[in-house]
Amino acid sequence: MSNIETSVSSFNHLQAAHCENGVTTALLGHYGIHKVTEPLAFGMGSGLFYIQLPFMKVNGGPAISFRTMPGMIFKRTCKSLGVTVTRKKYSDHKKAMAELDERVLAGKPTACQVGVYYLTYFPKEYRFHFNAHNLIVVDKQGDNYIISDPVMENLVTLNSYELERVRFAKGAFAPRGQMYYPGENLHEPSDEQMKKGIIKGIKLNCRDMLDIPGYFAGTSGIAHTGRQIKKWKNRLGDDKSRMYLAQLVRMQEEIGTGGGGFRFIYGAFLQQSHQFLPVDELFDISNQFTAAGDKWRDAAVQASGIFKGRLGAQADYDDMGDRLIEISQLEEKAFRQLKTMIKKLK
């Protein structure tokens, strides 16, 4: 669909690994900030995370996430650059569409949170009831909206019925018509501001991965899942264990993660941070995240052996569990080193 022309010719569609990073980077770029790349947005927004929510199930499997809460990346990145953020929720569908129209027709691209279940340009196989997808509405022509969806290669369109439907998708994290946008005529941040934002993002990410009490979040959460996996075969039986492992792999490798459960994007963030925060140790720590991402991918291969039925002995589950425990130790070491490095800066 590369033949779509938009009157907002200055808008550059940006394909990204992850939707919220992509929306953040493209909108900041459109309104005047070009220093923030996708990895920098992810890191300044403290995007990396791990959690296995206790007592909660998603599609009958474990509720696992490799990233922070939806909406936080945009919010934190804008905040550390002193950019104001407007976010609106609606109960009235008509008002939600009218206010979006008003902005878009005034040439102001605006982001919306949507559900993917009724997202017509997505392949059928991907239309789950997942409500934390993000896209940018760039323009309106007749009844059609021109959409910049960061996971697509080119601009796409939705008619007003389709857009209203995805903005008001129902279920967990229902978007309730949410739209959001940064302020206008933004000034390019100084390198010092970028540095401060990066330090802030790293600090918060260290806290999220190292200091959340309990056993289910951060690096200790990874080990927790590892220990649980060893018990799955006995406790859940083969069929259910396979489904659980498949769910883990989907959360880790699905579109949006950039591969390796976001660990590679984080590695890229640390590398790109060096231009604003010239500490050579960043390269070493970046390598550690690359190694962690590779281990996650190796673990996914092991998991697929089990859920495709090529493996299935208790020893295979133990092997899988040990892999996660090892990753937990690797990431804990990397974050501790990062924390010490940031402390030394002052």
Partner: peptide, 18 residues
Amino acid sequence: FGHIAKEVKYAVDSEGKY
């Protein structure tokens, strides 16, 4: 998904650069 759009992935080149 590849039928509709290729996905962006992050990786390192031969010099270790992302």
